[in-house]
Simulated scan of single mutants.
Amino acid sequence: MIKVVFKKRHNDIVSFTIDGHADSVDEGYDLVCSAVSAISLTIANGITEVVKAKAYVEVKDGFLSLSLENESFEVIHKCRVLMETMLLGLKNVENSYGEYIKVKMEEVE
């Protein structure tokens, strides 16, 4: 099971963590894992390479975490469309393959 947690402060997503594997089919053929990886890595690259945010990013096997919590309001706001797009994409994957992925949102201060 892939577990995705977004953290939102006020109206802006400030971080996400993705942990686990879908295990929906054999390794290398897992469309759920592929979709989650493609969406999340593209957004992480957009945040760090296009927006040039100094986000904290951690990547390991079956794990991706990105945090903007130490960034200014202006940088977080610039990343808003990317983060909301990622949330929408992963919620769509969850709608189709909910037995393999769970997405939730938490409010932080």
Rank of each mutant, 00 (worst) to 15 (best):
D61W: 04
I43R: 06
V25C: 08
K8S: 13
E71A: 09
S15W: 01
S15Q: 01
T17V: 11
S34I: 00
S24D: 03
N70W: 00
V32Y: 05
T48Q: 06
A55G: 04
A22P: 10
F63C: 12
D26P: 14
K54I: 03
K78S: 12
E27V: 13
N45Q: 11
C79V: 09
F6D: 15
H21K: 13
K8G: 14
S37C: 03
G28N: 07
F73I: 11
I43H: 08
V51T: 03
V25M: 03
A44S: 14
D19I: 08
K8P: 14
I39H: 04
V4Y: 09
I47Y: 03
S24F: 05
H10P: 01
F73N: 12
E27F: 11
S15G: 11
V4H: 14
E74H: 02
I18V: 13
K52N: 14
S24K: 04
D61T: 06
L64K: 04
V51Y: 02
V25Q: 02
V36G: 05
I76G: 14
S72H: 12
K3E: 05
N70D: 13
V50F: 15
V50G: 03
K60Q: 08
L31H: 06
G46A: 07
E69L: 08
S24A: 12
D12Q: 15
V57F: 11
I76V: 15
T42E: 05
E49V: 00
G46I: 04
S15L: 00
D12N: 13
A44D: 05
I43L: 09
S15F: 00
L82I: 01
F73W: 12
E69T: 04
S67G: 14
S72N: 11
T48D: 07
I13Q: 15
L41R: 09
C79M: 08
L41K: 11
V32L: 07
C79H: 09
M1N: 07
T17A: 09
V32R: 08
A44Y: 07
K78L: 12
E49L: 01
L64E: 04
N70E: 15
D12G: 10
K78R: 14
H77G: 09
I18P: 03
